[in-house]
Simulated scan of single mutants.
Amino acid sequence: MSTALTLFFALTLDAIFGEPKWLWSRLPHPAVLMGRLIGWADTRFNTDARLRAKGVILLCVLVILSGAIGALIAAIPYLDIITAAILIAHKSLIQHVKAVATGLESSLQDGRNAVAMIVGRDTEDMDASAVARAAIESAAENFSDGVVAPVFWFLVGGLPGIMIYKMVNTADSMIGYLTPKHADFGWASARFDDLLNFIPARLTMLLLLPLGGHSFVNLRSIAADASKHRSPNAGWPEAALSRALGIALSGPRTYHGEMQHYDWVNDTGRKQAQTYEIHAACQRLWLAWSVLLLTSLILSFWSAFLLA
């Protein structure tokens, strides 16, 4: 079975089953296992001197280990489909984002509680608009690194490719922070994660671009907004989705009680996001997912044609 056809079935499997609680309440999710390994390495090796060198060595070990495990799993028939489906987190992303809309429709506090599950900023004092914007930003960013990037690296490198990406992405989320503890030890993981997400983030931007004459988008303005973002990659999907919805994203927010005056993405858009725009964002993500599914099917037919 070709890599593209395997991807087609994996995308379909994820869309149907998502992350079944009955399974992951009994077994550790692969991402959890990756996190445990990285957490152990952080405790064991992030001490004393030469932290940047240790971080580079850790990254190399993680890449080799995850790639080797991916190659072993790929040798077992059909297990590569199941594993890829597990590592592509589209349906669970939609469920988490929609939960914010459902919460807001019930009460502001329920919305805050739901959005706190998917963002790292302070949520206690958010108004309804800030909650909605945070959910939409999370949808854009996580569609890039939770769906498009895994799909891209699976097409490039098969199961070893997606395993390496998920391991590096997990390492970045755990130790890739500019804090005194992790600035050196997590430096290599953070920089390599930026590199692995460079192309997928821009592909996500293209998938989320608004279509139609009245919604024509100047790519220069998207690039300008993306360059203002604190992340070298997250600004691209945010800039596209904000324009598709006609709202402004990013902007001021608080982390650990401190206000951070981030620039607005799509500054001319509406600052007051509403619940229905969360649902619109989810619809947009499903449309982009459909393009990925169709692309995988076209590539599988093309591969079969070339081999015929």
Results as ranks from 00 to 15, higher is better:
187 W>D: 13
239 A>S: 15
122 D>G: 11
195 L>G: 08
147 V>W: 01
238 E>S: 07
278 I>E: 01
16 I>H: 01
205 M>F: 08
44 R>F: 02
175 I>F: 01
78 Y>T: 14
285 L>R: 04
39 G>N: 00
82 I>L: 08
295 T>G: 08
274 Q>D: 11
269 G>K: 02
36 R>H: 07
78 Y>S: 13
238 E>I: 09
207 L>R: 09
167 M>S: 03
92 S>K: 12
170 T>A: 03
194 D>V: 11
129 S>R: 07
137 E>I: 10
85 A>F: 05
60 C>E: 09
108 L>G: 05
208 L>N: 05
38 I>H: 00
254 T>R: 15
264 W>Q: 10
247 I>R: 09
12 T>H: 09
307 L>T: 08
224 A>D: 12
72 L>Y: 11
59 L>S: 07
122 D>A: 11
119 V>F: 10
91 K>E: 05
218 N>Q: 06
239 A>W: 05
292 L>P: 03
207 L>W: 12
198 F>Q: 13
300 S>C: 01
17 F>H: 06
196 L>N: 12
29 H>L: 00
187 W>K: 15
67 G>W: 05
60 C>Q: 12
139 A>I: 06
84 A>G: 01
59 L>C: 06
134 A>D: 04
283 Q>H: 13
98 K>M: 09
176 G>C: 03
19 E>W: 11
229 H>Q: 08
54 K>A: 04
267 D>K: 15
185 F>W: 00
274 Q>Y: 09
66 S>N: 08
77 P>W: 06
165 Y>M: 02
109 Q>Y: 10
49 A>T: 13
150 P>E: 08
60 C>F: 11
304 A>D: 13
118 I>S: 07
4 A>E: 05
44 R>C: 02
152 F>A: 00
111 G>P: 06
23 L>D: 05
102 T>G: 10
304 A>L: 14
286 W>I: 09
21 K>A: 14
196 L>M: 14
110 D>Q: 15
61 V>C: 07
229 H>V: 10
250 S>F: 12
27 L>I: 15
36 R>K: 10
206 L>H: 09
291 V>M: 07
41 A>V: 02
32 V>K: 02
20 P>V: 03
291 V>N: 09
275 T>M: 08
69 I>K: 09
199 I>K: 06
40 W>T: 00
69 I>C: 14
276 Y>W: 14
289 W>R: 15
81 I>W: 02
88 I>P: 07
74 A>E: 15
15 A>T: 04
5 L>K: 08
224 A>T: 14
284 R>V: 01
22 W>T: 06
285 L>P: 04
246 G>W: 04
258 E>I: 14
147 V>S: 05
39 G>L: 00
49 A>V: 11
204 T>G: 12
11 L>V: 03
107 S>Y: 07
42 D>I: 02
289 W>G: 10
114 A>I: 06
